[in-house]
Nucleic acid binder design. Structure first.
Lengths: 290, 290
DNA sequence: TTTCCTTACGCCTATCGTAAGCATA
DNA sequence: TATGCTTACGATAGGCGTAAGGAAA
């Protein structure tokens, strides 16, 4: 098969229609250029140029081959540049996992930030629960995940990304709506929509601890995994709920949000997690950006 | 810049994920293969493969570069094949010139023939008057022309392609329509639509000689260059006309065609003309086909 | 200890440049 | 005779294969 250097030789001659000038342009002398063209023609099994000491012109085969040769050279150059950019982290793909609730709050801002700082990078967003994100990171399907804190994370690095205060979601006809803010004690013995211990163990445990420390026992009418389902139940008047403040972005007609008066350590943490052995150069740039 | 051989090396390794097997597949030993990959990586200024003695896998740059490399190799192979086919005359373009009138008769058959014999060849048809065809041949815009016989054709080869008998075109109300065939003498002193001497000198001279030899003098009411214009005048009842039989394919409501009884040398010749120095291999195949 | 990629080194092919050859206007 | 492509030929760079090196399971 021919080589790219031969294509460059041919393109130069085909455009100059003069071996001497083409050789000059290629920083070589004419004889080896002639030879390269001959080798290319032998390889193609077709003459590309009709030449004598007076003129050089393309054959029909040469006319067909010229644009192909140029295209191949252009693609090769593009491939080189594109690969370099990907390696430098200036281009490529960043696959971000997020839990449904985390997305409401910080994702839009994050997207704007990433797009501004790394314009060549494509971002793929995938909504996944925490455990699925950990698996996806392990199998290389995700580059970075946004999850609620969990314990066993040996192989990954993580850091706290943000903390959210809790807000109370109340049915519109709940008398508590008259107050500007809610105390945990206000919820004692009142109907309450709780996070389920399996699908949302972090929030389940967080609220469980909050209630226990305050010696409050709400009347748990439902246990639900997803925030939008909880809000739907609140909207239907089943009771109140406690959610991270980002959930207030979800608007339901019969749901009112009121801030929860609680010590500042009763916040919902959102962690960022990634594989330090990732080969994706974009990840590194993302981490320095954050 | 890298070379195609290096792309082949990389693709083999990237697909095998094993230097030894890839080298085998490439009919070489591992060490030079390693070296080629190293050279490619240095050229791209990005690592393509992460390798240790236990495993080989692609980097993000390698994942981007692999499909590009395959594409470039595929295009190179296609370019080679396509160019060969063009050179062998199995593919390419044949540009055929024809005079308006010649097209009516033989072009459709010719097209069918060419397409059947040379399926990969694109045919470009251009209607041009004889002189324009000669110019187009000289400047390489046409490969072959179908023209009426002319004299000065030094640089081109030509051969007679076909001869057409002449037919008389008569207005529908002309009493001559009652006859099954027409004698030249029938046209004496009758209104006649003639070819113009400049735009259709061949037919003008042919008919002039025909009339002179038969001592016939029709009453020439118009001189026109193009056959469809002549037939339009016949249709309008201006007079009769003599045309090559292919013109009978043009149907006008008030025009009747009748064969002309004449010696067989009073026929309209259609010549094929081409440049023997043409570099188009399709032409050669076309000539042997005809 | 085995596997397997890399480094080291000698050989050889292939390309380059210089110089001569040759055809055309 | 001048221009310009091709052929000839010696020097050299670069690729290949063999052999040794080294890291990981």
């Amino acid at each position: 098969m021919f080589e790219l250097s031969q294509l460059r030789c041919f393109v130069a001659v085909a455009e100059q229609l003069h071996f001497g000038r083409a050789a000059d342009q290629l920083n070589m002398t004419q004889p080896p250029l002639s030879r390269q063209i001959q080798l290319l023609e032998r390889e193609l099994d077709a003459p590309l140029l009709i030449r004598n000491s007076r003129s050089v012109r393309l054959t029909s085969a040469g006319r067909v081959f010229l644009p192909e040769a140029k295209r191949i050279l252009r693609l090769s150059d593009n491939a080189r540049r594109w690969t370099q950019r990907v390696w430098r982290g200036e281009a490529g793909t960043l696959r971000i996992g997020f839990t449904a609730a985390s997305g409401y709050g910080m994702l839009p801002d994050l997207m704007v930030k990433v797009h501004a700082a790394m314009p060549g990078v494509d971002v793929v967003l995938r909504e996944m629960v925490t455990s699925a994100q950990v698996d996806a990171l392990a199998s290389g399907v995700l580059d970075v995940g946004f999850i609620r804190p969990v314990v066993a994370l040996r192989q990954f690095e993580s850091r706290e990304y943000l903390r959210e205060h809790l807000v109370a979601a109340l049915p519109a006809d709940d008398p508590l709506c008259d107050k500007d803010s809610i105390q945990v004690q206000d919820l004692h013995a009142r109907p309450f929509v709780m996070f389920s211990p399996d699908a949302s163990s972090y929030f389940h445990d967080l609220l469980g601890a909050l209630f226990m420390q305050n010696k409050v026992s709400p009347d748990i009418v439902h246990q639900v995994g997803q925030m939008h389902s909880m809000l739907a139940l609140v909207d239907a008047g089943f009771g109140a709920a406690l959610l991270p403040e980002a959930a207030a972005r979800l608007q339901f007609p019969n749901v009112r949000f009121r801030p929860l008066q609680a010590a500042s350590d009763w916040t919902a943490k959102l962690n960022m997690i990634w594989d330090p052995d990732s080969e994706n150069p974009v990840l590194e740039r993302f981490l320095t950006l954050i």
